[in-house]
Computed example of a mutant assay.
Amino acid sequence: MSTLQISLAIIGGLVLAGVVAYNAWVTRKSVPRLARERSAHGPDDATGDETVPYSPEDLTGHEIQRIDPVLGDMPGASTQPDPAAIAVAAAAVHVNPLLHQPERRPNLDALIDVITPLVLDHEVSGDALLAALPGTRRVGSKPFAVEGLCDATGEWETPRLGQRYRALQAGVQLANRAGALNDIEFSEFVVKAQAFADAVGAAPEFPDMRAEVARARELDAFASGHDAQLGFTLRARRAAWSPGYVAQHAAKLGFVAGALPGRMVLSGSESGQAPILSLVFDPQAAMAEDPEQSALREVALSLEVTHVPRSEQPFVRMRQAAKALAEAMDGVVTDDAGQPLSNDTMDGIGADLESLYDALDSRDLSAGSPQARRLFS
Rank of each mutant, 00 (worst) to 15 (best):
R36A: 09
A250W: 00
P291L: 04
S224W: 05
K29L: 04
D220C: 08
A89F: 06
N176C: 04
F144T: 04
S55Q: 14
V95S: 09
F186D: 02
E50D: 15
P43W: 00
R363K: 15
R217H: 12
A257C: 06
A337G: 13
L16H: 04
V172H: 00
P53I: 00
E289F: 04
F232L: 13
A257N: 15
G76Y: 07
Q229S: 12
A285C: 12
A359Y: 01
H249S: 12
D352T: 14
S342N: 11
V190P: 09
E157F: 00
C150I: 05
S366I: 10
G368Y: 00
R104Q: 11
N107I: 00
T158N: 14
T51N: 11
A259N: 12
T306F: 01
R238I: 01
Q339T: 15
T153K: 04
T158C: 11
L375P: 01
A300N: 09
M287P: 07
V52W: 13
A351P: 07
R363E: 13
S7T: 09
R210S: 13
P309R: 02
G135H: 03
P207N: 07
A24T: 05
W25I: 12
P69G: 06
R317F: 06
H62F: 01
H62I: 03
T60M: 10
K192Q: 07
L120P: 06
F376I: 05
A321H: 10
A197V: 01
L130S: 07
A170Q: 09
A85E: 08
G254N: 02
G61K: 02
A372R: 06
N23I: 06
F232M: 13
S342C: 06
G225P: 05
E147P: 08
P134D: 04
F206D: 10
L16N: 08
A321Y: 02
G12M: 05
E298K: 12
S355I: 05
P143V: 05
Y357S: 15
L356D: 09
V20R: 15
P243G: 00
V93L: 14
E63C: 12
V190F: 10
V191K: 12
L234S: 13
N107Y: 02
E57D: 14
W241G: 07
M264A: 10
V265K: 04
D358E: 15
R235M: 12
E218M: 03
V190R: 08
M346A: 12
A180D: 01
F315S: 07
A175H: 01
A259F: 01
A202Y: 05
K252P: 15
R215V: 01
V190S: 07
R166I: 00
L161P: 07
R137L: 15
Q313A: 09
T116Y: 02
I11C: 13
V26I: 15
S55A: 14
L168W: 00
P159L: 09
P75K: 11
P75W: 03
T27W: 07
D208P: 02
D183T: 06
F232V: 11
